[in-house]
Amino acid sequence: MTFTISAPPHRKDEITFKKINWSKMAALLPVILISIYFFGIPALGIILAGVLSAIVFEVAIQKVFNQKISIADGHAIMIGLMVALIVPPEVPIWIPMAGSLFAIAIGKHIFGGIGSYVFNPVLAAWVFLNLAWGSIMTPVSFPQLGAISNLVLENGAGLLIGVSPIALLGGLVLIYLKYVEWRIPLSYFMTTMVLALLVGDNLSHVITGAFLFGVLFIATDMATSPVTKNGRVVYGILCGILTVIYGHFDNYVYAAFYGVFLANCVSSFIENVTLPRPFGTESYLQNKYRSIMKKIPFEKLGVSIDE
């Protein structure tokens, strides 16, 4: 009797790339619904334009370069959705289309596709749109938390994503399900809070939808963050520092995006310098402790060490 054989391990986790992407989109669903409720049909048009054009450009690029069409994994759809969510609701309909084209073509495929891009495609597209059409992309107002009800429905939201900070907490479910790692969001959030308090910024400007979106969805993007455990903490702290530097002098909506964008530049360097030490060797702190203890002249001080 013969059997079908497969390579070990024979038991695997159920998680797939497809599942990660679609669950991220599901976590964004409350914000989408609230922004459509708040801004009306234009928001729906922008989101549809972003998602559909992202699908079209992804298929076109993969057809032209004879690659396997990978729409079903949801990565292109997620990029299109996120690009559409970080533009103001008043923009013409071609702005999210241009953003999706830039994100898919230049942000993702030029660098080698899934897992190979240096900059988060969403942020690359946002920076491109913001520099190319600055007057169109400037939001009408920047949100400020006045009351607790603003956490649920932010009346001063300038971007689609800023409409309801509390609806973004679906990202916490992703962390609970371990689809997203907790180190980057935690270190990013804590660093920003502490530094913003230190430089005297009002926290009502800091906690915006854009910032929480940056913490839970943008900074945790897998390909553009370091893989090592310590590196992820360092990356989160760096994101926080850059965000506060930008936000202190301008505003925290742009700061979240520019901070993560600039931190993307150095994430691979962070990864290379924080490679874990081989198992069983001294850690950095143990090594320092030993070298310091060696320098103290215990015999001259009259201290005898028991053998």
Partner: peptide, 29 residues
């Protein structure tokens, strides 16, 4: 294992999610 328990998975490019780094017991990458 029954026929329905076998994994017919298709390998795609590494997405650098770092799950393997988290579970490695001897701290490799």
């Amino acid at each position: 294992q029954g026929p329905d328990e076998i994994h017919y998975d298709e390998t795609i490019a590494c997405i650098h999610c770092a799950r393997c780094v988290d579970v490695c017991p001897v701290e490799l990458v």
